[in-house]
Design a protein around this nucleic acid. Structure first.
Lengths: 350, 350
DNA sequence: GTGAAAGCGCTAACAT
DNA sequence: ATGTTAGCGCTTTCAC
């Protein structure tokens, strides 16, 4: 019943080999007339190859897996789209999974992907440990980390790309310092991913280098409903800002772990009757689409997502296809300070 | 080399049949000891079934396809996540595709999905015509439309779900009318999808019913860079609002086609020195996450995405699994007006 | 309670 | 330039 390579062959009056050859870019092995006939048959029958069969036979797959916290998060949504574009341009499909940074869920997804024949997995959470993937890696899975370095991973990763998160955070805080702020706070969700840790480190470093106070009373670290606040980041940022402004000596400026949280922090500041940037300066991280149109436009650190996605896919495919061996390659992208309107010179009280 | 059902059988000292039986929920066909041994072997070998082989054999697939304009759009990102959750809960995986509402790209993706064995496709754009899918539907693809009705589609769809877009728009405009506005504008991207058309119709209806002016000079319809502005909606909303406020008799209130555009419209209004809602009222559509934290919080029409996703997946699976035949079922969800701060009573000039 | 064996649709030697 | 054929890993009917 199913129209397969056989029906095409029969209709065109050739053998299955010839059809297969045409399908696999070996068209030059047959006469133009034959080719013509086969193509007509394919067309007429509406034939399309059975990927399962092909994959079973060849053991290869033109599919990459992608696990992100949630595409409902604007940053990851864009990253997913860019990764898909990069993969498509190279003839690969990508299967997305939203795993809320849950290691068990990530493992289950990865296992499922492997059973689908996927050999390359792009991981868009930046977990401290990859141990939940170790058995899969032993079985041949190649992992490419987006947003964290493979260098210090606890299992062997294929490759990785990330902005220099620490530098980015330093840039953000230095900008605030340059504006005259001396009590600079930080708001984040769970600081349990490589990228968040690096950002908070950068924040501390910049403060220390300037001889400014770094204390627990300046930092707010919230917990998401499910996971790390990737979906409800804005709410967390809002709650964090309210809480921070309630403390004894509130900061005059805040570095917020990412833009989604920062936009929430805007709301928190308003809730507390503070105006941004007049009373309170804010700098975010990521430069999501909405940051530019927010009021005030958000000063933030930009991640060059598209090029990051493209180079990561290239590196991953090189591993998978070329069988590139050796140490994992880590690509670092440069963060860029985008000055807009949410950070202003400190308002000298009194 | 590959660890397959055979290696497991050998290690457990049983036949492949027994292993297969265990794998397919026919565990009662064997003695408990046998079962025990097989399970140990599976564990020890780290065996995981080859989906390609299984699919090739059975002709069935536990995978659904999902095509959306772009997950980089907050609305579609959330919808995608909810659809995935619903499918997962029913034992299905979903493969996402971002197709920017490009019919040719949609067709290519759908074809690819079919070649992967996918029989059910959820389509999250609401095209006027589905003709680019007709040959695929003939070959057995079942399409479930999210965000538009299957009833008036030009090919036979499996099922569909959407909010009552027309009603939603009427609700929005009536709210504005109730606030005393008489010149009510509309901003949209390309009005070439079923849902946008319905919203604009609802907008006109509400105006007409109230005897208010409905004119081209009140409507702005922009074009996206690629497609329908699903990624750059905010920018379009901004441009639209600027342009609208430039016209001879600008509106005092605007119904914006969706929240992303509405947030952009905020920026446009500010660009023109108008304050929302003091000088200008705005109502959006969708109720995305960011709408609540925007300043002012956006008054909008809420779509109950999670339940919509769940019922659509149920309906689709019923078709695919149970071979449910007959006319397509269309599910309608009720839109809900969420009053927040972006629409206020008209400011009586002079 | 367990096993043998026939393919699912395709690719790629290996013929001719 | 074209054809024959042996499996890829699995499910399932049928036999024991």
């Amino acid at each position: 019943m199913g129209v397969g390579i056989g029906s095409v062959a029969k209709m065109a009056g050739v053998s299955v080999t010839t059809v297969s050859n045409l399908l696999n870019g070996r068209a030059e092995r047959m006469s133009p007339e034959t080719r013509q006939r086969v193509m007509q048959a394919i067309e007429a029958l509406g034939y399309s190859p059975n990927t399962s069969a092909r994959q079973l036979k060849t053991g290869k797959s033109e599919t990459l897996g992608l696990i992100v916290p949630s595409v409902a998060n604007p940053f990851w949504g864009l990253a997913a789209h860019e990764i898909e574009k990069a993969a498509m341009a190279r003839g690969y499909n990508v299967v997305f999974c939203n795993a809320d940074r849950d290691p068990e869920l990530e493992r289950r997804y990865a296992e499922k992907l492997m059973s689908y024949g996927v050999r390359g997995l792009i991981l868009g959470s930046s977990p401290l440990s990859f141990s939940h993937f170790s058995s899969l890696v032993e079985r041949g899975l190649v992992i490419a980390a987006f947003d964290r370095s493979a260098a210090d991973a606890d299992i062997s990763l294929g490759c990785s790309v990330s902005v220099d998160n620490r530098l980015g955070a330093r840039l953000a805080v230095q900008h605030l310092i340059g504006l005259g702020h001396r009590r600079i706070g930080a708001i984040s969700g769970p600081v349990r991913t490589a990228s968040r840790i690096a950002r908070i480190e950068g924040y501390r470093e910049a403060l220390q280098a300037a001889g400014l106070p770094v204390g627990a009373d300046l930092i707010w670290e919230g917990a998401g409903i499910s996971g790390f606040g990737d979906r409800e980041g804005a709410d967390l940022g809002r709650a964090g800002m309210r809480e921070l402004l309630t403390r004894a000596e509130p900061p005059t400026a805040v570095f917020v772990i990412n833009d989604l949280y920062a936009l929430g922090a805007y709301a928190g500041a308003r809730d507390m009757g503070r105006s941004v940037p007049a009373d309170l300066s804010i700098v975010g991280f990521d430069d999501i689409l909405l940051s530019e149109i927010a009021q005030p436009p958000l000063t933030t650190i930009r991640q060059p997502i598209a090029p990051m996605a493209a180079s990561l896919v290239d590196a991953l495919l090189a591993r998978i296809q070329g069988g590139v061996e050796g140490d994992p390659i880590h690509l670092t992208a440069l963060p860029e300070l985008v000055v807009r309107g949410s950070a202003a010179p400190i308002n000298q009280p009194g």
